[in-house]
Amino acid sequence: MIDLEPPLLQVEGLSKLYGRNVACKNVTFKLWAGEVLCIVGESGSGKTTLLNCISAIQPQSSGRVLYQTRHAGTADVTAMSDAQKRLLMRTDWGIVHQNPRDGLRMGVSAGANVGERLMAVGARHYGHIRAEATGWLNRVEIDIDRIDDLPGTFSGGMQQRLQIARNLVTKPRLVFMDEPTGGLDVSVQARLLDLLRALVQDLQLAAIIVTHDLAVARLLAHRLLVMRRGEIVESGLTDQVLDDPQHPYTQLLVSSILQT
């Protein structure tokens, strides 16, 4: 691939140790604007830790995460101040948690959940915030009548869609998702994946999605990283990796899913 523009995100030699346990070891990759990258691997392979380190939720043990900011050029996220990190997190980034309860504010209505990020970046006009929230609920297929209901009264699928709307309202360029379809039944999963695929395409979002579900990866991802014991064992275009796995572990992973 020829680098015409600098990558949106560059992870360089990222490692994370928990005491003597290695969670991530020397992870290096690049992500370009509008690209969807899936990180797959079995439980305990360090996927979530890697995501948390990249998204500045957890400090890494070594390595750098370079991000192409909107206004200030390339910056090392891990060296940013708390204030800069938090600003990045609520403007240019979105973080979708596996459990929507972790990502939503359960005590306030759906509309307020979507509007919170707008208010956090200075929106002070109720009418505009309300209109924006309405638009986003529409977009993620939540009935407008439910705008003033608490997320606790929503189904799991709706909560997850609400969480996505809440993250996308400030038009981020990069979204981190940790098992976005985990805990949802298959039909709801399919609907959510459809929605995600459409949103990613419409908004030209870059996304890093952690999943153990190869079907999710196949449907959403342009590229794939396969992790095992904290290391990337294989990477490449999704179809290439899934159809012609090279590493024995990837072969095992691919052969373990039901063939249709």
Binding site: A83, G111, A112, M119
Partner: peptide
């Protein structure tokens, strides 16, 4: 405390938003 330190007061407006919504 962190929110005070960084002057992140969007949350305060969420309470007022909720009032108006309801």
């Amino acid at each position: 405390r962190k929110m005070h330190a960084l002057k992140e007061y969007g949350l305060m407006h969420v309470t007022l938003y909720e009032d108006i919504a309801h």
